[in-house]
Deep mutational scan, measured.
Amino acid sequence: MAEQVALSRTQVCGILREELFQGDAFHQSDTHIFIIMGASGDLAKKKIYPTIWWLFRDGLLPENTFIVGYARSRLTVADIRKQSEPFFKATPEEKLKLEDFFARNSYVAGQYDDAASYQRLNSHMNALHLGSQANRLFYLALPPTVYEAVTKNIHESCMSQIGWNRIIVEKPFGRDLQSSDRLSNHISSLFREDQIYRIDHYLGKEMVQNLMVLRFANRIFGPIWNRDNIACVILTFKEPFGTEGRGGYFDEFGIIRDVMQNHLLQMLCLVAMEKPASTNSDDVRDEKVKVLKCISEVQANNVVLGQYVGNPDGEGEATKGYLDDPTVPRGSTTATFAAVVLYVENERWDGVPFILRCGKALNERKAEVRLQFHDVAGDIFHQQCKRNELVIRVQPNEAVYTKMMTKKPGMFFNPEESELDLTYGNRYKNVKLPDAYERLILDVFCGSQMHFVRSDELREAWRIFTPLLHQIELEKPKPIPYIYGSRGPTEADELMKRVGFQYEGTYKWVNP
């Protein structure tokens, strides 16, 4: 592979701008107003304001973009700056750019259920340069409990009458099928589907988006991507930290609602779906819905739930269990780990287990898709061969690698495990991989909904998990304890083995 010439960040961002501006969906010269509902909250200060700053800094926003914060707290732009700027990672050389960014910011205080507050917000936006005809993007960085009041008031008082209007809704989209349907029906009564952007930030990850290209742009994968060759698929999300004093919020939802029903299920769809007619948003989402419709409700015998306990040999936070978090209700049975087996009941995947695993306070930070292939028929190497695996590593250190057998150097035919490896950090030294939120917010500006969740996708996802969630809430089974920093409950490994996964433990990928 030829040595790549190092590029400056300015040059890299210039390439990104060229890609972005050559499309006809990006209205570079139009006025846009980006409204952050819930501007005083954690999500706004840690993710949304920093993301908008990065896009502005790199010249990736339309030229005439204004940012308006809205929340109940009586704040000023200076207050917003004070709480969000520490997350910007701005350099001293960017000081003038930073001043320009905050000059485009404003803030309006108001209630979430008060019509007069929204009329005041609308008047404020109209007073901005060309504000009355601007395109408006409303980001709901809010708890779902206020979605209905907020969307109703936005629709009645704050819509642009000339430009387009788009609304970005953060997960969780309800707690179960019934609450999700209620919320979807409410929002759909106010906005068209092409105006609604239900954001799952995992769909903005580079390697998640790469799944489609790997599958449908490489001839070698087509013939082997089926039940005849693939023994099982494992989708993993692991965090090495616990709730760390923020367990009160987590306890309301648990690990299945927080990660599995959305992030992991979306990745499953991209692995299992048929080739779409095109890369058009609805063509892709149509195929994802077909996959979900082929999955039956989760069966309790295919589920393992766990909850982390303190590690007596650990240090600091590792010595504390979930129930030691003062914000967690006493005696909570909320799971911090889950392993679930699903089956896609169609011709391509009949009988292939899709194993979804996620948890907190585990032994490493990792998100990946792992396809394990069947054993080689007619073994001539005296059971020395391990199964081939194709691994798409989402985070950290984005990579695609194939675990395969090669001859060990020497005189004899002794096979050993090795890999074919594409590590993004080595291959793409001159490429700026956008943060997931950067990519998705740019998608909203461009009107691309491919990486957002459609209402029928959402409904099918909740259909699969709601009976299990209701059973857990009714019966309150005690989750299996696992030690902070471990791989999780051993019962999860036993479940995976029972459905056909072979864990060798003899080879570990190392970032080159």
Rank of each mutant, 00 (worst) to 15 (best):
I48P: 04
I154P: 06
V233C: 10
L137A: 12
S29I: 10
E85C: 08
N135M: 10
K205G: 03
F173Q: 05
G38T: 04
I33K: 01
D100E: 06
A25G: 15
G59C: 06
G247V: 07
L55E: 03
L7Q: 15
F216L: 03
L235A: 09
D114Q: 12
S73W: 02
S188C: 09
P50N: 06
L140V: 11
D194A: 10
I35H: 02
S123F: 10
T65M: 11
L137G: 08
R182I: 13
I196Q: 06
L211P: 01
V77A: 08
P50E: 00
P50W: 02
A115Q: 15
P50G: 05
T236R: 01
A44K: 03
E94W: 06
A39I: 00
F253Y: 13
L16G: 08
Y197C: 05
Q22S: 15
N64Y: 07
S189P: 10
R192D: 13
R219C: 08
T51W: 03
M207L: 12
K46A: 01
A6N: 15
N64F: 09
H27V: 15
S84N: 09
W53D: 04
A127K: 14
I154H: 01
N64V: 06
S179D: 07
I52D: 01
K47W: 06
G163P: 05
R192K: 14
T31K: 15
L43W: 02
P50C: 06
A127E: 14
R215D: 02
A78Q: 14
E85Y: 09
P172L: 04
V169A: 08
T51D: 04
G110T: 00
S29H: 13
P223R: 07
F191P: 01
S132K: 14
D79P: 01
A90H: 06
A127H: 15
D42K: 02
P92H: 15
I35M: 08
E94F: 05
T243A: 06
S180L: 06
P144L: 03
I80T: 05
F21L: 14
E63W: 10
K97N: 06
I199H: 04
S84G: 10
K238G: 03
G59I: 00
L43P: 02
G41F: 03
E170N: 03
P62K: 07
W53F: 06
I52F: 09
F138K: 03
N218F: 01
D58T: 10
N64G: 08
V12I: 14
N210I: 00
H155F: 11
R219H: 09
E239H: 04
V169K: 02
N105R: 03
I168H: 04
I199K: 00
D251N: 14
R182Y: 13
W53R: 02
I36F: 00
S8D: 11
L137S: 07
I162H: 12
N153W: 10
E156H: 14
R9C: 10
A217K: 03
S84Q: 11
K205I: 04
V150S: 14
K47I: 03
E193A: 01
T243E: 03
A71L: 03
R57M: 04
F191S: 02
D24H: 11
N218W: 01
L7E: 13
I15T: 13
I162G: 12
T76Y: 07
L130H: 12
K152E: 14
F250I: 03
K238L: 01
I48Y: 05
N165Y: 06
K238Y: 00
L43Q: 04
G69T: 02
Q161L: 15
I35P: 05
A25P: 14
D194I: 08
Y107A: 07
D24C: 11
P50H: 04
T31D: 09
I167V: 14
L61V: 11
Q28W: 12
G247P: 01
L235W: 03
L55A: 13
R74D: 14
E85T: 09
G23K: 14
T91N: 13
F101A: 02
R17F: 14
G59W: 01
L130D: 10
R136V: 09
I36Q: 02
F88E: 03
I48S: 03
I52E: 03
Q209G: 08
I220D: 00
A149W: 12
G38M: 04
A39Y: 02
D113Y: 13
F34L: 08
A103N: 15
L190I: 14
L20T: 06
A90L: 10
N105Q: 11
F250G: 01
E244A: 14
S117C: 12
E170C: 03
Q28D: 10
I196F: 05
D251A: 06
V108D: 02
P86W: 06
H129S: 10
F173S: 05
R81V: 10
S117W: 09
G222F: 10
A90Y: 09
P144K: 01
R57F: 01
P223E: 08
I168E: 02
Q11V: 09
F173C: 06
R57G: 06
E252D: 10
Y249K: 03
S184N: 13
P172I: 00
W225I: 08
S84M: 11
H27Q: 13
Y249A: 04
M159K: 15
Y197M: 00
S160P: 07
E244N: 13
A103I: 11
M159D: 08
Q161I: 11
M159N: 10
C158H: 01
V12M: 15
D200E: 04
P50K: 09
I224D: 06
G254Q: 05
R72Y: 02
P62S: 08
D200N: 05
L60P: 01
W164H: 08
C158G: 06
Q195G: 09
